[in-house]
Amino acid sequence: MAERMIHELDWLNDPVVESDVEVNQNVIVGKLPAVVRKLFQWGQGQSVWPMLFGIACCAIEMMAAGGSRFDIARFGSEAMRASPRQADLMIVAGTVNEKMAVVVRRLYDQMAEPKFVIAMGACASNGGPYWDTYNVVDGVHKVVPVDVYVPGCPPRPEALLQALMEIQEMLKTGKRGLVTKG
């Protein structure tokens, strides 16, 4: 798993292929690939589609974020995809136990790059109230690489939205890890 824990979205940061030297001498056309890439990243950041995947109590707050008051559609993420292959973001909302961990990993593997994981709630972050039991995986980072942790039991929908904005920022800058300042 270690080699998966890259800190840059590598394919987004690939050096722009300089195939035609003559075109590159033109200032405007030479910058075109970079501009297109920026535009592309911006668009991607505005349409993070989460996977429709709730596990436990936190899933209800995730649904609340999709509901009428918090309205995740404002952030372009209302299209919850039932299939992992169409999703960019996996929100692990709930307690993952030994039986579920296998499924979580498989779903993660089926997602297309670039993919992100939010560990929502105390259970997904470190086992929460169930950390010392015989069946609960204490922290979903033992199964999949996590990008953002959201504390709380359950976290409020605002907290989830904040995490989503963090993911958007990562996509826009093309880097993983802590990107927002302050």
Binding site: G94, N97, T133
Partner: peptide, 11 residues
Amino acid sequence: IGYLHRCFEKL
């Protein structure tokens, strides 16, 4: 079932 067994009773 069993995907959400969280050992409530034992805990």
